[in-house]
Each structure stands twice: as structure tokens, then as C-alpha cells.
Amino acid sequence: MIKRMLAVDGVNVICEFRDDGSFVEGYGMLPEEHMMGLAKFAHDYKRIVQGNADQLSMFTQMNGWTPPGGWIVRGERMSVCSIGNLVCLVDNEEGSLTEVMAELKDVSSM
């Protein structure tokens, strides 16, 4: 099911991980060992974003930061996008982050 993310423009890799960080499956142009690393990074980064969102809520006393819906780390040529337990690598020149995030949200809720 997550494989359909590869049909979205710019998406090179899609991976799914469990709540404990272990790798479930992945598709795209990356050796499996690197996909497992990506899944591990996404799991750890998700926890960090959750921690930072908790602090934003605490310090601003505003609702809406938590629970975090997802995250994007945008590099010069590539971006890493994640929602739920899915993470994908996106080529910035070929894809639209808006489209990728919308599709990720859709697929992660299935």
C-alpha cells in the first residue's frame, strides 16, 4: 500500500517503521540497509519533534502544537518528509512538498 507513494512526483524512497523504530518495509532507490537507517532516523526524529512540540505547548500555553502532525527537513536538493510511521525522501526539484504531505497523510491513515 505504501508503495503508491512512489507514484507521487519527486518521491524517491518510502519507508514504514514501527513504534519501537524497527523497519517494516521500504521501496525505492535506496539499499535496504540505508532504508533501515532512514526508518531509525525518522523514528528518533519523530520523538524529538514530539519533545519540542511539548515544550512549545508548555512555554506558549497555546493549543495546536501537539500532537505534531508530521515534519519536514528540507535540504538543498533533497527533503525528508514524515507523517505517522511513514517517511519518504523527496527530490526538491521534481516534487511538491504540499502534494507529498497530503498523500503521506492519506496513506498513513489507511
Binding site: 531509525k40 532516523f41 528518533d44 526524529y45 520523538r47 524529538i48 519533545g51 519540542n52 511539548d54 515544550q55 508548555m58
Partner: peptide, 15 residues
């Protein structure tokens, strides 16, 4: 909450 968040970050960075 703050200490836990930083510990999580440092743990990932160290890995």
C-alpha cells in the same frame, strides 16, 4: 519534559 527532550536528541545525535 525539557531534560527528556534534550536526552532524546543527544541520544540520536550520538548514534
Amino acid at each position: 519534559i525539557m531534560c527528556r527532550a534534550t536526552t532524546m536528541s543527544v541520544h540520536m545525535q550520538s548514534e
